[in-house]
Design a protein around this nucleic acid. Structure first.
Lengths: 181, 181
DNA sequence: ACCTGAACACCGTTCAAGT
DNA sequence: ACCTGAACACCGTTCAAGT
């Protein structure tokens, strides 16, 4: 399959993400990524510092791609919309999503989602100083569920049941938000 | 350091856990575990099927060690006690704890904790058919927090602040339980 | 029964060399 | 500037051989 021999960081990350999605994180090696691009492993080092940097790049690529809801939407609906968007992303990229728990939530991609959650909470009347903590608490709950699903901790439970569990987690978050106001 | 040359599964797992605790999961190799036991890497294969089996064993060792509260304790206090116990375990073994999200919660070690949570919920008057789902929902929230902390997603936030976040997650769980009864 | 030696295919990474 | 070839130390795993 004739691919352009001119590669860049973006194409390296896209190849890595594809391999991770199809065959898991263990399938992402410097050699397999290079193969997919039609290049030798050593060529990658011009575009990523090392393998850890490549993996960081995959997480960032995934986070940047999480879509945000239209600003016209009511704030609580917007929160639910983002929870669903995060779950969709995790289902599409389960292997890379698990890496998310292992890096500080301070990259540009992480902030892009976090800021949108904080904005919705402020609009919902959550007191200024409580916004940051509330964001962390509800993000932790959603992330715990979504990461469990991506990692396979729910085992072979049916899709219908897992969806009902997700609804229950959202109900828990709602109960918490109700108590705040 | 003169160690007995007679090894068994238990000693292999204990060596692996020690290495993971001190230097992370990447430091757990067949060679490093063997070195610690004063043996060649090939000797391990008599006691673990392969490296994946070794890692499974580490998770199981960790889960089996999570202590349970005295049965005399009131049910809600018991739930809080177990959340703290899980957090303690994760702080002692952060690297191995992250693997927990990646395997089905159906092993003996996982059931040992799960059953205790379910028993507390039943005692608290949660309706029979709702017990299993409620257990999954609150476990997901606690696990999400504890895994985030173990993985380093909270970055360099101070211990005081992270403790306050943990209290807030527990408050969310309480709000959910209140709504159920 | 339990451990070892030798061997294999595969990792990540470097450095000097090519174009 | 960008990619390659050769090399290094290190993986997991096998198999036959030792005791």
């Amino acid at each position: 399959m004739g691919r352009p021999l001119q590669i860049d960081r973006q194409s390296v990350l896209e190849a890595g993400l594809l391999l991770a999605d199809e065959n898991g994180l263990a399938a992402v090696t410097m050699q397999s990524v290079a193969d997919m691009l039609g290049v030798t492993p050593m060529a990658l080092y011009r575009h990523v510092a090392n393998k850890a940097d490549l993996l960081d790049g995959l997480v960032e690529l995934l986070l940047t791609d999480v879509p945000l809801p239209p600003a016209t939407m009511e704030w609580r609906e917007r929160l639910a919309w983002m929870a669903r968007a995060l779950r969709d992303t995790a289902q599409r990229h389960p292997a890379v999503f698990l890496l998310l728990l292992q890096r500080p939530a301070t990259t540009a991609g992480a902030l892009h989602v976090r800021d949108a959650v904080c904005a919705a909470l402020r609009e919902g009347g959550v007191a200024g100083p409580a916004v940051a903590r509330t964001e962390r608490v509800i993000s932790t709950a959603i992330l715990g569920f979504v990461a469990s699903e991506a990692g396979g901790r729910f085992g072979s439970r049916s899709t219908r049941e897992v969806n009902a569990d997700f609804a229950a987690v959202e109900a828990m978050v709602e109960a918490y938000l109700d108590r705040l106001s």
